[in-house]
Nucleic acid binder design. Sequence first.
RNA 1: CGGAGCGUAGCGCAGCCCGGUUAGCGCACUAGUCUGGGGGACUAGGGGUCGCGAGUUCAAAUCUCGCCGCUCCGACCA
Length: 582
Amino acid sequence: MRWSKFFIPTLREDPADAEVISHRLLLRAGIIRQLSAGIYSYLPLAQRIALKVMNILREEMNGIGGQEFFLPALHPAEIWKESGRWSAIDDIMFRLKDRKGAEMCLGMTHEEIFTSIARNEVRSYKQLPLVWYQIQTKFRDEPRPKSGLMRLRTFTMKDAYSFDVDEAGLDRSFEDQREAYQRIFTRCGIEFAIVEASSGAMGGTASNEFVARTPAGEDLIATCSNCDYAANVEKATSRLPVIEDEAGPAAPEEFPTPGVRTIEDLTTFPGGAEASRQIKSLVYMATIEDEARPVLALLRGDHQLHETKLADGLGATAVRPAQAEEIRELLGASAGSLGGVGAKERATAAKSKLFIVADLGLKGRRNMTTGANKDEHHLRGVDIERDIKPDRWTDLRTVSAGEHCPRCETGVLDVYKAMEIGHIFKLGTKYSKSMGAHVLNQDGKEVPIVMGSYGIGVDRIMTAVIEQNHDADGIIWPKSIAPFDCVVTVTNIKQEELRAAGEKLYEDLGRAGLEVLLDDRDERAGVKFKDADLIGIPYRITIGKKAADGVVELFERRSKTSEDVPLADIVARVQSLALSGL
RNA sequence: CGGAGCGUAGCGCAGCCCGGUUAGCGCACUAGUCUGGGGGACUAGGGGUCGCGAGUUCAAAUCUCGCCGCUCCGACCA
């Protein structure tokens, strides 16, 4: 490819709207352009990179027996109603109507479509296991698209689905995918971690999230300094020092606390209690099976609730903090004076049914202080199991850096930012049951197909690679997904002998099977060097002053080192380099 | 959805408060001359519905109202 004819609109200055590094470099290097919030056009460089990524995805999916499909992006509502997700998913789905008024949507994922194919065509366990996948555009009406290709409204995803006759089969399929994912991210030059994560509204029994560490990431990951424990904070736990409370009174004692609104207030109030001896009481409205239910969540005073944990712990599709009026109606007090003692009875009196869920960190605690459900009054001497009797104990707390690892003896947790690049789920029979996808097993019995679902964002791979592979001068593409293997830079295109040498080398490299960009623009050498660094081609071969002596310069983008190489050797040299390492 | 900011040439910005010639600067672009190894110099040019719509005014990029779009923080994020 000749640079003079290839569309690479590089930018000298940083675009004002781009904050994160990958976004800035994608724009400056002429790789993408924005069409609308969360919607980007792929320019020729982007397309070359994306195709390389997709090739790796295909090789690894095919390598574990995957078969590539291409499914519609436009779906009828019916199929989403069958799985129950038409109503379970809210505004994030793009919905539309056709000319007849029939409801449709743009696919945000394809469980339903693949399941319906399996349901119609697969009859016997003998046809299983199956691994079906596709690389497709997905649509999600994100409430807040951001950071270039990191959070998009239309994006490209490789989504794979496994179909097995039983759980053991699913375990094998899941492990195959897990290993394939590790190979994929390694080949793409991404430093990643596999973490435990919430399955969210996806449903299912287990999931692993693949994340790439970057300050621009939106997820928080907790890892152990000692063992291999790693989890998204929406799932992470830690080991707390055991607290032995001294015995309290036989029953809670109410006391007035004028002016006390917060946990903090009560720590300094005379007769109050330190935060770790208080019970934090939060009222939430949870959507459980399409029904809004009030929930009282209890945590230790110095602990932070994690809303995803609350939703997961309740089996809710959504949770939101209750509003002040809702709280008063339910418990007869304002948020600063709430507590679990007698809360259910009060709610019942208000013709409502309150569910109480308590964080495991409160288990066995007694002689605690909490609100009295009476403005500016609190209770001391509360024994949680005796006086509150929560409906459920579960993990609700957000872990913090420095806490002890839940898995090993000596480890301490570190918390860092990362972006999600892939997610694999054991779906089980959620979709096969709701949509009636069954096979006959070996005993001639009809059983629901056991499914898994496995996604990788192509755009996010590009983003993560740039986040992790760049310097002050631009992108440093790993060889595996670089848009070109090398660039031949002719320092002065007006010097006929240099131009001729460049043309010849360009052809020789191409014949050797390399993807070459020939910088034949009538620009000064400095401009060409800056552009080559910016777009991040792994190798640059400069044809300049020494060409008359049969010598060219070989520059490696990643190390920024260069060496003189005889023109006669350069093709073989670049060929061997391009095939080795990252 | 809550909060903040921005919208003037392809990109980055000034002008707006305090309304008043022909709306300016840098980069990029076109032509020419010189130059030619880390974003070169000079000369001459082209390019603008000042986001859109109403209003106030003799007069609006500038003031007022409404709308739209984009960015950031938070909520949210199959």
